[in-house]
Design a binder for these strands. Structure first.
Lengths: 100, 100
DNA sequence: ATAACATATGAATTAGATTTCATATGAAAT
DNA sequence: ATTTCATATGAAATCTAATTCATATGTTAT
């Protein structure tokens, strides 16, 4: 049986912070410090997380002066999120998707 | 900012074993012991993992005599896998999606 | 060249999730 | 009713991944 290891991809969107980053960037590109400020999280924490996401090409980066602007890879990620949203709405009446 | 907590959904497909289970069930429904045998994994390990996946409605279960038959929720999961596959193929030349 | 700001990175720690092991539950057969 | 087979479950142990903290790197301005 061949089984592609997409697990790294899923791992990379599987935490609360990263999901929040994705949601935030869905509204538009942001710099690291902007993300930190909005989410109320520490800079190194955010940077570590951004790095992982960029490695999976979930995010793109570009340098702008001193800043690094991160943006969603809308091309592939948005459609995936849409499908997941559909799954959740269809099968999960609020409670189902929560941590126990 | 509203940010739905889909992270539990992603977590639930984010490990090697679970990805393997999904790939296996993509070929058709299987009982717990069949899955154990094919993957060469312990029964309780598989059961714990199946439980999580079923809680997220990624899998369905039905009782057949003594056995429990697990199957993929093809309706929503297959399309998601297809999109992820697309992402991986587009952006990741083998190396990218591997553990470091 | 140096200072100031923005971000990245390494290593230790911490936190959380997975596995393991022992045992419990449930279904069918005798 | 009891045994057997199939699966589930709880709790402890183990792993792995995320966070933290200190510091390094990189960029622009002076």
């Amino acid at each position: 049986m061949k089984c592609p290891s997409y697990n790294l991809f899923f791992e990379t969107i599987a935490t609360k912070v990263r999901m929040e980053i994705m949601c935030l960037l869905r509204e538009g590109p942001k710099s690291v410090s902007q993300i930190c400020k909005i989410l109320g999280e520490e800079q190194s924490k955010i940077s570590h997380n951004l790095k992982k996401m960029a490695e999976c090409h979930i995010l793109d980066v570009k340098q702008e002066g001193k800043q690094r602007i991160y943006s969603l890879n809308k091309d592939t990620i948005i459609p995936i999120l849409d499908l997941v949203e559909k799954h959740v709405h269809k099968y999960c009446g609020q409670e189902c998707m929560k941590k126990k």
